[in-house]
Design a protein around this nucleic acid. Structure first.
Lengths: 247, 247
DNA sequence: CGGAGGGTTGAGATTCATCAACGCGTGTGG
DNA sequence: CCACACGCGTTGATGAATCTCAACCCTCCG
């Protein structure tokens, strides 16, 4: 546990801090604390009252729901710069999710009290939270969409597409950012099905070797795109991409 | 299309207007318009740029995702007082969802321009939006949870539980608020499976007759509860409910 | 060297979607 | 007023897809 004065720890400014005034940022960070957590550590359990926002400085977290039988449904997988529990604070009532460190991690905890007062004082902060929660919501809608009407193949393809766009359209290779079993669960399938699906992808111009994904060309994932994701694609107007839902 | 001066049209204040100052409310409503839309009418399509928030005055809407093959995944089902597209506005980019009237409806349209300026000027309005979006997010997480790890029976049970809590714990009877096929799709199953599941519920103390659900006792749905939902239950501390996850 | 955890592969079981037919209520047009 | 079509919901038979269970490999680490 340690006090923070600056946020220079991050490569890029976390979304939650974007465009904040000096004072606002100082106030938030000044009241927050840094913690080391071990892999496997449960930070929040379903039913707990939310107490703070967790901002990942280093490592990885996941949020998920679980039932009595030990089944789990992964909702989000987080990397440095990502935060969680912002939404839960505004849901009212106890947390519907668990939060767990999946690697040894460093997290910054922003107390609920500070968040709630700051939201009413700083419209920019409120807007940041709104954008963040809206984005989470969007991702979760895509999850529902995928589980309801896509084949495992399409789900994996769409997941790859997002990672590819994230890495940059010119990057034909990228790594899976999380453990396969976790991604599988996030995509609503068993590790076995995920593994088998990865094999099938080779027949579609996508080579998988351990955690490395290698695309044969930049259009390999276009089958898996949809109208709202196409807006993110730098090649969206490239006629060469005949699979693009935009044309 | 008509101008609005007051919002007395609603039974209860819609969440989006809660605790707003007179001026704020006046500004928002003053720039909004009322529209009649026919059942089946598509208000927004996936890929469209969001243009306004839709607040239902009368009738019913749904939001859903669809693919080229005509498959659909219902995300939300809305009644008077509910609103949609607030979240989409803050996602950035085109809409990931369709919005459709499922009955002849009256909707109030609040232009995006007004919303975006008002959010920066009125922290209460921003907080309202935050709460609304957070709530949507929570519901969608439950959807993922249900589809991933619950049987059709459990999904229907949980849906009934929510409707029951909504109607009041003393109300043992309530009606399905939407068409069965729509609820089925929302729950991630086919109408056939939904129908078969309803029959099975009779063997669990829950009688279904057309759209009417009749519980034999107030604990009939407790099997389907979970830790975060139990917080809403007025009987949560009642020892008679031995199924309650709280004890 | 041995154990643990993650990942892969295979065989079998189960469950839900699919397809098809039918009943029923409603609205419409002759 | 009747005939008919249409939409919604139900029921039954079938099949396919994914989960489950089991064994195995590999790497990492004590």
């Amino acid at each position: 546990m340690a006090r923070l004065s600056k946020t220079q720890t991050f490569q890029n400014t976390p979304q939650i801090f974007e465009n904040l005034s000096e004072q606002s940022l100082e106030k938030i960070v000044g009241h927050s604390t840094l913690h080391n957590v071990n892999a496997g550590c449960i930070l929040v359990q379903q039913g707990d009252e939310p107490s703070c926002i967790y901002l990942i400085v280093d490592g990885a977290l996941r949020t998920y729901r679980s039932d009595d039988d030990g089944n789990e449904a992964t909702i989000r997988m987080l990397k440095p710069g990502d935060s969680c529990m912002e939404a839960v604070m505004f849901m009212g009532g106890p947390s519907p999710i668990n939060v767990q460190a999946v690697e040894n991690s460093v997290v910054m905890m922003i107390p609920q009290r500070i968040v709630k007062t700051q939201v009413l004082e700083d419209a920019q902060f409120a807007t940041n939270l709104l954008r963040i929660v809206a984005r989470h919501y969007k991702n979760t809608m895509h999850q529902v969409d995928g589980i309801n009407m896509k084949t495992p193949m399409q789900r994996v393809g769409y997941y790859f597409l997002l990672r590819h766009l994230e890495a940059g359209h010119d990057q034909l290779d990228f790594d899976l950012p999380f453990q396969k079993q976790m991604i599988a669960n996030y995509l609503g399938m068993t590790p076995e099905t995920f593994s088998r699906t990865l094999k099938q992808m080779r027949e579609n111009g996508i080579d998988v070797e351990n955690d490395r994904i290698m695309l044969r060309d930049s259009f390999a994932l276009c089958h898996f795109c949809d109208t709202d994701t196409a807006a993110l694609c730098p090649l969206r107007d490239d006629a060469a991409c005949d699979k693009c839902p935009m044309h």
